[in-house]
Design a binder for these strands. Structure first.
Lengths: 110, 110
DNA sequence: GTGTGAATTTACCATCTGGGAATATGGTTG
DNA sequence: CAACCATATTCCCAGATGGTAAATTCACAC
């Protein structure tokens, strides 16, 4: 949000990208892809998600530009497209730790 | 997602934080708070959101740890709590630009 | 062409969530 | 205390979304 003009349209686009990450299943897929390229079948194994469900999550990730894909014979191979995803998640995690330690203090001081 | 163990619980917590940002109205509130502290009434002016609706969005932001608040007489004053929010949004925006330029190229090459 | 395996899409259901109206709570004033 | 104002909460509705099964598409082999 670099001090620039934030039009409603732009905010909406940003929100859409956050929506894609706002789902544990999709975060888990990204996590699995961290180790390298994976076919949809591989990912089904890795995540335990149902096939149709997984496919829809992959579509979201693809539309959001978080993953790339290509076909290899019968298989479709997915890979991470966005090196920033994990930096974003790290920021989220860091804040998570602060929050839970604050919560601990609140509970302790009762 | 620092190469560490990502338990389902942790992924769920991270997803919850993303959910808070996955809403244009809440991004707009954060944007408005960027200029400094604001009462709920101020924010209603700034954003054009209805009172009840705004109040609920503020609750999400508060629960997510993105804003802090305190009372001043009849008013409740909100302020940004998380300096990382805009760094996260910047990463999202940066990627947005890449994506739309790729899209332009795709459209151009038809 | 047919058959098979992998992936996507569709259809449907249950749940969730943003929005607004009405109500409740909290704090101030007189 | 009552009256009032700012905020929060509750209730309800409409639309969005995750999950699964069934149908469809796509690519390869025969």
């Amino acid at each position: 949000m670099s001090n620039a003009k934030m039009t409603p349209e732009l905010l909406s686009l940003i929100a859409d990208r956050f929506k894609v990450l706002a789902e544990p299943a999709r975060l888990e897929i990204l996590q699995a892809l961290r180790a390298g390229e994976r076919s949809v079948s591989d990912l089904a194994q890795d995540t335990g998600l149902g096939q149709a469900n997984l496919s829809k999550h992959l579509r979201s990730l693809y539309d959001g530009g978080f993953v790339e894909r290509h076909r290899e014979g019968l298989f479709v191979i997915y890979r991470l497209a966005d090196k920033d995803v994990f930096r974003i998640c790290d920021l989220m995690c860091g804040r998570l730790e602060e929050l839970s330690s604050k919560r601990r203090k609140l509970l302790a001081s009762r």
